[in-house]
Nucleic acid binder design. Structure first.
Lengths: 109, 109
DNA sequence: TCCAATGTTCCAATATAATCGAACATTGGA
DNA sequence: TCCAATGTTCGATTATATTGGAACATTGGA
Protein backbone atom coordinates (compact mmCIF):
# COMPACT_ATOMS: atom_id res chain seq x y z
CA UNK A 1 0.00 0.00 0.00
CA UNK A 2 1.69 3.09 -1.27
CA UNK A 3 -0.79 5.73 -0.20
CA UNK A 4 -4.10 5.60 1.59
CA UNK A 5 -7.47 6.19 -0.07
CA UNK A 6 -9.76 8.95 1.12
CA UNK A 7 -13.26 9.91 0.10
CA UNK A 8 -13.59 12.89 -2.20
CA UNK A 9 -15.13 15.86 -0.45
CA UNK A 10 -18.24 15.43 -2.61
CA UNK A 11 -19.05 12.15 -0.94
CA UNK A 12 -18.39 13.28 2.59
CA UNK A 13 -21.63 13.07 4.55
CA UNK A 14 -22.51 15.38 7.39
CA UNK A 15 -23.91 12.62 9.53
CA UNK A 16 -20.70 10.64 9.17
CA UNK A 17 -18.73 13.63 10.38
CA UNK A 18 -21.00 13.99 13.39
CA UNK A 19 -20.75 10.29 14.11
CA UNK A 20 -16.97 10.35 13.89
CA UNK A 21 -16.82 13.31 16.28
CA UNK A 22 -19.24 11.74 18.75
CA UNK A 23 -16.54 9.64 20.38
CA UNK A 24 -14.15 10.96 23.01
CA UNK A 25 -11.05 9.32 21.57
CA UNK A 26 -11.72 10.53 18.07
CA UNK A 27 -12.70 13.99 19.24
CA UNK A 28 -9.42 14.17 21.10
CA UNK A 29 -7.52 13.20 17.97
CA UNK A 30 -9.32 15.85 15.95
CA UNK A 31 -8.74 18.51 18.58
CA UNK A 32 -5.04 17.73 18.78
CA UNK A 33 -4.66 17.79 15.04
CA UNK A 34 -6.40 21.15 14.95
CA UNK A 35 -4.23 22.56 17.71
CA UNK A 36 -1.04 21.22 16.16
CA UNK A 37 -1.79 22.83 12.84
CA UNK A 38 0.64 20.43 11.21
CA UNK A 39 0.73 16.81 10.23
CA UNK A 40 1.16 14.45 13.15
CA UNK A 41 2.03 10.79 13.25
CA UNK A 42 -0.22 8.36 15.09
CA UNK A 43 2.59 8.01 17.59
CA UNK A 44 2.66 11.71 18.36
CA UNK A 45 -1.04 11.51 19.05
CA UNK A 46 -0.54 8.87 21.66
CA UNK A 47 -3.61 8.50 23.80
CA UNK A 48 -2.38 5.53 25.81
CA UNK A 49 -4.23 3.03 23.71
CA UNK A 50 -3.12 0.00 21.74
CA UNK A 51 -2.07 0.55 18.18
CA UNK A 52 -4.97 -1.47 16.85
CA UNK A 53 -7.48 0.71 18.66
CA UNK A 54 -5.92 3.88 17.38
CA UNK A 55 -5.83 2.46 13.89
CA UNK A 56 -9.52 1.66 14.16
CA UNK A 57 -10.38 5.23 15.12
CA UNK A 58 -8.20 6.68 12.39
CA UNK A 59 -9.96 4.48 9.89
CA UNK A 60 -13.30 5.95 10.93
CA UNK A 61 -11.95 9.50 10.89
CA UNK A 62 -10.61 8.92 7.39
CA UNK A 63 -13.75 7.33 6.03
CA UNK A 64 -15.78 10.20 7.45
CA UNK A 65 -13.53 12.57 5.54
CA UNK A 66 -12.20 14.34 8.62
CA UNK A 67 -8.62 13.17 8.48
CA UNK A 68 -6.16 12.77 5.66
CA UNK A 69 -3.23 10.43 6.04
CA UNK A 70 -0.17 10.40 3.86
CA UNK A 71 2.41 7.69 4.11
CA UNK A 72 5.95 8.91 4.72
CA UNK A 73 8.36 6.07 5.07
CA UNK A 74 7.19 3.93 7.94
CA UNK A 75 5.21 6.78 9.41
CA UNK A 76 1.69 7.94 8.63
CA UNK A 77 1.26 11.67 8.73
CA UNK A 78 -2.23 12.82 9.66
CA UNK A 79 -3.92 16.14 9.14
CA UNK A 80 -7.41 17.58 9.40
CA UNK A 81 -9.30 18.28 6.18
CA UNK A 82 -10.48 21.50 7.74
CA UNK A 83 -10.58 23.76 4.68
CA UNK A 84 -12.46 21.27 2.53
CA UNK A 85 -15.00 20.54 5.21
CA UNK A 86 -15.46 24.21 5.97
CA UNK A 87 -16.22 24.83 2.34
CA UNK A 88 -18.78 22.06 2.12
CA UNK A 89 -20.28 22.45 5.59
CA UNK A 90 -19.47 25.99 6.68
CA UNK A 91 -19.11 26.45 10.39
CA UNK A 92 -19.67 22.87 11.45
CA UNK A 93 -16.14 21.82 12.24
CA UNK A 94 -14.98 25.30 13.22
CA UNK A 95 -17.76 25.77 15.75
CA UNK A 96 -17.12 22.36 17.23
CA UNK A 97 -13.42 23.10 17.59
CA UNK A 98 -14.22 26.49 19.04
CA UNK A 99 -16.55 24.89 21.56
CA UNK A 100 -13.88 22.48 22.72
CA UNK A 101 -11.43 25.32 23.19
CA UNK A 102 -13.85 27.38 25.23
CA UNK A 103 -14.82 24.56 27.55
CA UNK A 104 -11.26 23.33 28.01
CA UNK A 105 -9.88 24.70 31.28
CA UNK A 106 -11.39 28.16 31.28
CA UNK A 107 -10.09 30.78 33.72
CA UNK A 108 -12.80 30.14 36.24
CA UNK A 109 -15.03 27.17 36.49
CA UNK B 1 -45.55 12.47 35.74
CA UNK B 2 -46.63 16.03 35.47
CA UNK B 3 -43.81 17.48 33.42
CA UNK B 4 -40.64 16.03 32.01
CA UNK B 5 -37.16 16.72 33.35
CA UNK B 6 -34.49 18.22 31.15
CA UNK B 7 -30.83 18.93 31.77
CA UNK B 8 -29.91 22.51 32.54
CA UNK B 9 -27.97 24.09 29.72
CA UNK B 10 -24.90 24.16 31.96
CA UNK B 11 -24.71 20.39 31.95
CA UNK B 12 -25.32 19.93 28.26
CA UNK B 13 -22.23 18.33 26.73
CA UNK B 14 -21.09 18.97 23.19
CA UNK B 15 -20.26 15.35 22.56
CA UNK B 16 -23.75 14.30 23.62
CA UNK B 17 -25.22 16.73 21.14
CA UNK B 18 -23.04 15.33 18.38
CA UNK B 19 -23.94 11.80 19.35
CA UNK B 20 -27.64 12.60 19.36
CA UNK B 21 -27.39 14.17 15.91
CA UNK B 22 -25.37 11.31 14.49
CA UNK B 23 -28.43 9.17 13.85
CA UNK B 24 -30.66 9.58 10.80
CA UNK B 25 -33.93 9.29 12.69
CA UNK B 26 -32.94 11.80 15.34
CA UNK B 27 -31.44 14.15 12.79
CA UNK B 28 -34.72 14.04 10.91
CA UNK B 29 -36.63 14.90 14.08
CA UNK B 30 -34.33 17.83 14.79
CA UNK B 31 -34.56 19.12 11.23
CA UNK B 32 -38.35 18.95 11.26
CA UNK B 33 -38.57 20.72 14.58
CA UNK B 34 -36.28 23.43 13.25
CA UNK B 35 -38.29 23.82 10.07
CA UNK B 36 -41.59 23.86 11.91
CA UNK B 37 -40.44 26.62 14.22
CA UNK B 38 -43.18 25.64 16.65
CA UNK B 39 -43.84 22.90 19.10
CA UNK B 40 -44.78 19.60 17.51
CA UNK B 41 -46.25 16.47 19.01
CA UNK B 42 -44.53 13.15 18.51
CA UNK B 43 -47.45 12.20 16.30
CA UNK B 44 -46.93 15.14 13.99
CA UNK B 45 -43.34 14.04 13.60
CA UNK B 46 -44.37 10.64 12.40
CA UNK B 47 -41.50 8.88 10.75
CA UNK B 48 -43.28 5.57 10.19
CA UNK B 49 -41.81 4.00 13.26
CA UNK B 50 -43.34 2.39 16.30
CA UNK B 51 -44.14 4.62 19.23
CA UNK B 52 -41.59 2.91 21.41
CA UNK B 53 -38.82 3.59 18.92
CA UNK B 54 -39.76 7.23 18.64
CA UNK B 55 -39.93 7.52 22.38
CA UNK B 56 -36.46 6.05 22.63
CA UNK B 57 -35.04 8.64 20.26
CA UNK B 58 -36.83 11.49 21.98
CA UNK B 59 -35.37 10.37 25.25
CA UNK B 60 -31.89 10.64 23.81
CA UNK B 61 -32.63 14.02 22.23
CA UNK B 62 -33.89 15.28 25.57
CA UNK B 63 -31.02 13.96 27.62
CA UNK B 64 -28.59 15.50 25.16
CA UNK B 65 -30.34 18.82 25.74
CA UNK B 66 -31.46 19.24 22.16
CA UNK B 67 -35.18 18.89 22.65
CA UNK B 68 -37.55 20.19 25.26
CA UNK B 69 -40.84 18.46 25.83
CA UNK B 70 -43.78 19.90 27.69
CA UNK B 71 -46.79 17.84 28.58
CA UNK B 72 -50.08 19.25 27.36
CA UNK B 73 -52.95 17.00 28.19
CA UNK B 74 -52.28 13.66 26.62
CA UNK B 75 -49.90 15.17 24.13
CA UNK B 76 -46.23 15.96 24.42
CA UNK B 77 -45.18 19.12 22.70
CA UNK B 78 -41.57 19.13 21.50
CA UNK B 79 -39.33 22.00 20.57
CA UNK B 80 -35.67 22.57 19.82
CA UNK B 81 -33.57 24.27 22.48
CA UNK B 82 -31.92 26.23 19.71
CA UNK B 83 -31.33 29.54 21.45
CA UNK B 84 -29.81 28.00 24.55
CA UNK B 85 -27.53 25.73 22.58
CA UNK B 86 -26.50 28.57 20.30
CA UNK B 87 -25.49 30.58 23.31
CA UNK B 88 -23.43 27.80 24.82
CA UNK B 89 -22.04 26.35 21.60
CA UNK B 90 -22.28 29.13 19.03
CA UNK B 91 -22.69 27.96 15.47
CA UNK B 92 -22.80 24.25 16.14
CA UNK B 93 -26.48 23.58 15.75
CA UNK B 94 -27.07 26.40 13.30
CA UNK B 95 -24.36 25.24 10.94
CA UNK B 96 -25.62 21.68 11.09
CA UNK B 97 -29.15 22.80 10.29
CA UNK B 98 -27.86 25.01 7.51
CA UNK B 99 -25.93 22.10 6.06
CA UNK B 100 -29.01 19.90 5.98
CA UNK B 101 -30.97 22.61 4.20
CA UNK B 102 -28.31 23.11 1.56
CA UNK B 103 -27.91 19.43 0.79
CA UNK B 104 -31.66 18.72 0.75
CA UNK B 105 -32.86 18.70 -2.84
CA UNK B 106 -30.77 21.50 -4.31
CA UNK B 107 -31.64 22.96 -7.71
CA UNK B 108 -29.09 20.86 -9.53
CA UNK B 109 -27.38 17.78 -8.30
C1' DT C 1 20.05 -9.22 3.83
C1' DC C 2 18.26 -8.69 8.24
C1' DC C 3 15.93 -6.08 11.50
C1' DA C 4 13.54 -2.54 14.05
C1' DA C 5 9.83 0.86 13.58
C1' DT C 6 5.22 2.20 12.28
C1' DG C 7 0.63 1.03 11.34
C1' DT C 8 -2.83 -2.03 9.39
C1' DT C 9 -5.55 -6.16 9.33
C1' DC C 10 -7.63 -10.06 11.43
C1' DC C 11 -10.23 -12.03 14.92
C1' DA C 12 -12.78 -12.83 18.96
C1' DA C 13 -14.71 -10.85 23.06
C1' DT C 14 -17.26 -7.39 25.19
C1' DA C 15 -20.07 -3.38 25.38
C1' DT C 16 -23.37 -0.28 23.68
C1' DA C 17 -27.35 0.94 20.84
C1' DA C 18 -31.52 0.31 17.98
C1' DT C 19 -35.78 -1.98 17.37
C1' DC C 20 -40.41 -2.91 18.54
C1' DG C 21 -44.37 -5.50 20.78
C1' DA C 22 -46.85 -5.44 25.00
C1' DA C 23 -48.06 -3.55 29.24
C1' DC C 24 -48.51 0.60 31.73
C1' DA C 25 -49.50 5.65 33.10
C1' DT C 26 -51.85 9.91 32.45
C1' DT C 27 -55.20 12.85 30.64
C1' DG C 28 -59.54 14.62 28.90
C1' DG C 29 -63.89 13.71 27.24
C1' DA C 30 -68.30 11.01 26.65
C1' DT D 1 -66.91 5.97 35.63
C1' DC D 2 -65.27 4.21 31.49
C1' DC D 3 -62.72 4.70 27.49
C1' DA D 4 -59.86 6.34 23.72
C1' DA D 5 -55.63 8.90 22.77
C1' DT D 6 -50.80 9.90 23.53
C1' DG D 7 -46.45 8.52 25.06
C1' DT D 8 -43.42 6.04 28.31
C1' DT D 9 -41.42 1.94 30.24
C1' DC D 10 -40.14 -2.83 30.16
C1' DG D 11 -37.91 -6.70 28.21
C1' DA D 12 -35.98 -9.39 24.72
C1' DT D 13 -33.79 -9.54 20.31
C1' DT D 14 -30.80 -8.03 16.94
C1' DA D 15 -27.37 -5.05 15.14
C1' DT D 16 -23.42 -2.23 15.48
C1' DA D 17 -19.14 -0.47 17.84
C1' DT D 18 -15.21 -0.71 20.73
C1' DT D 19 -11.33 -3.04 22.43
C1' DG D 20 -6.92 -5.15 22.13
C1' DG D 21 -3.68 -9.15 21.22
C1' DA D 22 -1.31 -11.37 17.48
C1' DA D 23 0.09 -11.71 12.90
C1' DC D 24 1.14 -9.20 8.87
C1' DA D 25 2.92 -5.51 5.48
C1' DT D 26 5.95 -1.85 4.27
C1' DT D 27 9.82 0.99 4.79
C1' DG D 28 14.47 2.59 5.76
C1' DG D 29 18.66 1.82 7.89
C1' DA D 30 22.55 -1.05 9.83
Amino acid sequence: MRQIKHPAIEQVELIEILYALADPTRMEIVVRLAKAGRKLTCGELDLNRPKSSMSHHFKILRSAGLVETVVDGTEHMNSLRLAEIEQKYPGVLESVLKATQDSAAPDSL
